[in-house]
Amino acid sequence: MIRAPGLGLLLAAIALAPLQALSQGRPYVVLAAGTTTRDSGLLAQLLPLFEARSGLAVRVIGVGTGRAIELARRGDVDALLVHDPAAEDALLREGVASLRRTVMVNDFLLIGPQEDPAGARHASDAPAALNRVAQAQGLFLSRGDDSGTHKRELALWKATGTAPEGSWYRETGSGMGATLNTASQLDAYTLVDRATWLFFRNRGQLAILYEGDARMRNLYSVLLVSRAAHPHVRPRAQEFADWLVSKEAQAAIRAYTIDGQVLFHPAANPPSEESP
């Protein structure tokens, strides 16, 4: 009891050790990346190459694009790898981001139950496919989380001219993985990017029903958070942005396949025209 203060100090020192440990170790930058780039396994493939070359570690926060952009606005990350061109334009306009470079492209897919009760697979284009789902009142899951995928889904609904409303249209408010898990349980339709779909294991009865419309192109860019807006951001993030558009990185992106399928196509300038 009399020794308690000394013991307390000792325990406090032990407890605070992780707080101190953080200031040590290799230099790093913090990247907020859309969940698709992380969940697809692409970053796990790319980052060791970059880290070996530069000696700079990249700490990846995997979040939806909407949240990634919010992190950038608050100055909590140094760079973004996201896929929402309109939101990216806004960041550049506001001066939050100082640079954007197109890195790669893939496409969105409309998936749904194998039997396809709405007949979406016979549609002529993407809005028509969604229209068939709406008319048949087939259960459709929306991310509902302001992610790049959610924004694109809303844009496609807008192109159909009908507002998605009713008990058949549900928002999961979750990431792509959680939404796919739900869809496979409910045999629901949803929009997903090709990379996540190829990597996803728990597909159940789900299948690709519609793909190939130009409006389903999915463009990924790297953005640097501006040092003018947030002076503390790590300037070495520039090295990572430069590397992503380098020959080495672009080749590695093309080389990443699952079941023989390319997940992302390199799109650094000159812009690649080989979008699917």
Binding site: P18, L19, A21, L22, V30, R59, I61, R73, R74, G75, D76, H230, H232
Partner: peptide, 16 residues
């Protein structure tokens, strides 16, 4: 958060 009152500590996204 960097925009929060304790942002200067640089603790976000660390074990601390």
């Amino acid at each position: 958060s960097r925009s929060g009152p304790l942002g200067w500590l640089g603790l976000l996204f660390t074990p601390g």
